[in-house]
Simulated scan of single mutants.
Amino acid sequence: MQVNRDFGGGRIGAGHGAAVRIRPLVDILQSCDVTAVHVLKIDIEGYEDRALLPFFREAPAALWPDHLIMEDTEHGQWAQNVFPVLRRCGYERRSRSRGNILLSRF
């Protein structure tokens, strides 16, 4: 019997693939009338660059989160390194846990 030791993991479907509708983060925030984001926690298994880079390119700076918690252990799967972009947006590393990094902008 195989034991799942990834307590924070999740999956959609039974491993056979399923169509999932995706939307840009900025569109979701704007459609929900969000005007400020204090903390954004993102963990999308190596696709952080594909969500964050368009967000920081398209979202008004007023929607940029004060703090960003993200998993970076899958950075080898990124098509583009997000850290230089985050630094240019004013984010600095504040802390780190086993699999996550906390970045803040003030």
Rank of each mutant, 00 (worst) to 15 (best):
E92H: 13
V39T: 15
F83L: 13
L68N: 00
E74H: 15
F56H: 03
Q80D: 08
L40A: 10
G99L: 07
P84G: 06
G90I: 04
E74Y: 13
R98T: 14
A79S: 05
A62D: 14
H67I: 07
G76H: 02
I101F: 03
T35Q: 08
C89P: 03
R57T: 09
A18E: 15
V34N: 09
R88F: 03
E45N: 11
R21Q: 13
F7C: 06
R11L: 13
S97D: 12
R5D: 09
L68K: 01
L29R: 05
G10F: 14
Q77P: 01
H16W: 12
S97K: 07
A79G: 08
I22F: 10
L52N: 00
F83C: 07
N81C: 15
M70S: 02
Y47I: 02
V34T: 14
H75I: 11
E45G: 07
P65Q: 05
F106A: 11
L103Q: 00
D72C: 08
N100W: 00
V3A: 13
L103F: 04
M1Y: 10
P24W: 07
M1N: 10
V20S: 11
V82L: 08
I44T: 14
V20D: 05
G9S: 15
S104N: 04
F55S: 00
Q77D: 08
D66H: 05
S31R: 08
V37T: 08
M70F: 08
L25Q: 02
I12V: 15
Q80N: 07
N100H: 09
E92F: 07
I42Y: 03
A36T: 14
G8N: 12
F56R: 06
G9L: 10
S97L: 11
R57H: 07
Y47H: 06
T73D: 07
F83A: 05
G76T: 05
N81Y: 10
E74N: 14
F83G: 03
G15P: 04
G9Y: 08
L103G: 00
R98A: 15
L86K: 01
C32M: 09
L102F: 04
S95H: 14
I101H: 00
D66W: 01
W64Y: 09
G76S: 03
F106Q: 09
W78F: 15
V26E: 06
D6M: 11
A14H: 05
K41L: 07
R96T: 09
N81W: 10
R98L: 15
V82K: 00
V3T: 15
F83D: 02
L63R: 02
A19S: 08
G13F: 03
V37S: 06
P60M: 04
P24A: 05
D43S: 08
L86Q: 00
D72T: 12
V34D: 10
R98M: 10
V26A: 06
R96K: 09
E92K: 09
R94M: 09
R87A: 10
C89E: 11
D6E: 14
L40Q: 04
R57K: 12
T73Y: 12
A59N: 01
I42A: 02
T73A: 10
V37D: 03
T35N: 07
V82Y: 02
G10D: 05
D72L: 07
W64E: 00
